[in-house]
Amino acid sequence: MKNKLIFSLLILFTTVIYSQKTVIGKWKTIDDSTKEAKSIVEIYKLNNEYFGKITKILNEAVKDKVCIKCKGVDKNKPIEGLVIIKKLSKDDTMYVDGTVTDPENGKTYTCKIWLDENNNDVLNVRGYIGFFYRTQQWKRIN
């Protein structure tokens, strides 16, 4: 019985430590200009690549919007449920060479993401066009 308790605590401790050092999980998106919380994005791994899906829109007034400006297979899909981060590869402490789509304007950008060096509960999300970029900081949801 004692061994089972110690083993269970060890598993729990390892899970908590691991989950805090990975981008996998749920993140509250924060608009970098208004500081408004907009949605919940779940980052997950599939076939050794990382993706991010909007699992919840926080503003009820726009919850049922579709991505009318998106291109290709994402055009006219509901924003809630849309995979906005695609095909990131892990490179040391960063996740790079993927894309992020802004469902408000339908534009897709080259993307990289990384955990903040001072706080593993902050995810830096950077979208690029050439030399120009914009970075948002998302907050982990526990």
Rank of each mutant, 00 (worst) to 15 (best):
D32S: 12
I68D: 13
D64L: 13
T22W: 05
N105P: 02
Y128N: 01
N119K: 02
Y18K: 09
P103K: 03
K90V: 04
T135H: 03
K2L: 14
D32I: 01
D91Q: 11
I30K: 02
L46H: 14
T99F: 04
W114K: 14
V41A: 09
D32Q: 08
N118P: 00
E60T: 14
L88N: 09
T29R: 06
Y95P: 10
I57N: 05
T93C: 01
I11H: 07
N120S: 11
G98L: 08
V125G: 03
F51C: 09
G81V: 03
E42T: 14
L46M: 13
K112Q: 14
M94Q: 12
I30F: 02
E80R: 05
E117V: 09
P103D: 07
L5F: 10
I40W: 01
L10F: 15
V83M: 06
L115A: 06
I141A: 06
F13I: 14
T22S: 15
M1I: 05
K21G: 09
E104V: 07
K38H: 03
N47I: 08
Y18L: 13
D116F: 01
Q137H: 11
W138Y: 05
L5K: 10
T34A: 07
Y128W: 04
L5T: 08
S39G: 07
T15N: 11
V100R: 00
V66Y: 05
T34K: 10
W138L: 04
Y44R: 12
V100Y: 00
